[in-house]
Simulated assay, not measured.
Amino acid sequence: MSEEHLAITVDSAPGASRRLVRCRLCGRPLTGADSRRTGLGPTCDAKLHPPVPDIRTRRHEVEQDPLPGLDPSVG
């Protein structure tokens, strides 16, 4: 028997109920595999780990004096 076959038969055993896992922050039952693995629901996970701000929204153009020796208008 391969390991894959064993995992399938164990997971699909009749009458096997999944253990109830609750969110560590709010206590609601977790149903998704990722949520059950981390112990946080998607809403609570977003509260604790906000998305990283996009650096492109923070950039802006500014007026600058040309560097000495690089001004093309000076002959």
Rank of each mutant, 00 (worst) to 15 (best):
T43Y: 11
S12A: 15
G41E: 00
L30E: 00
D11E: 15
P66F: 04
E3Q: 12
L67I: 10
G75V: 13
V52R: 05
A46Y: 04
D11R: 15
T38H: 09
S35G: 06
K47S: 06
T31Y: 11
G39F: 01
L6N: 10
P66M: 06
R24Y: 06
H5C: 13
P51S: 03
G15C: 00
R37V: 05
D45A: 14
G69I: 03
D71S: 14
V52E: 06
P53C: 01
D34R: 14
M1A: 12
R58N: 06
R24G: 12
P68F: 08
R56I: 10
I55E: 12
C23F: 08
H60G: 02
R37H: 09
V52T: 05
I55A: 11
L6A: 12
I55L: 09
D54E: 09
E3D: 12
C26H: 04
T9G: 08
D34S: 13
A13R: 07
S12I: 10
A33S: 14
P66V: 15
P53N: 03
G27N: 03
G41K: 00
V74M: 13
I55K: 10
R58S: 05
G39I: 05
H60M: 05
G39K: 04
D54N: 09
R37T: 06
D71A: 14
L40C: 02
D71G: 13
P53V: 02
R56N: 04
R24E: 10
L25A: 02
G15W: 11
L40E: 01
V21E: 04
P72E: 04
T9K: 07
D65K: 03
R19C: 11
V10Q: 08
P66N: 08
L67W: 04
V10P: 01
S2P: 01
E4I: 13
S17V: 10
S2W: 10
R59T: 06
S35Q: 06
R22G: 09
A7I: 13
H5D: 15
E63A: 15
R37K: 11
D34G: 12
D54C: 04
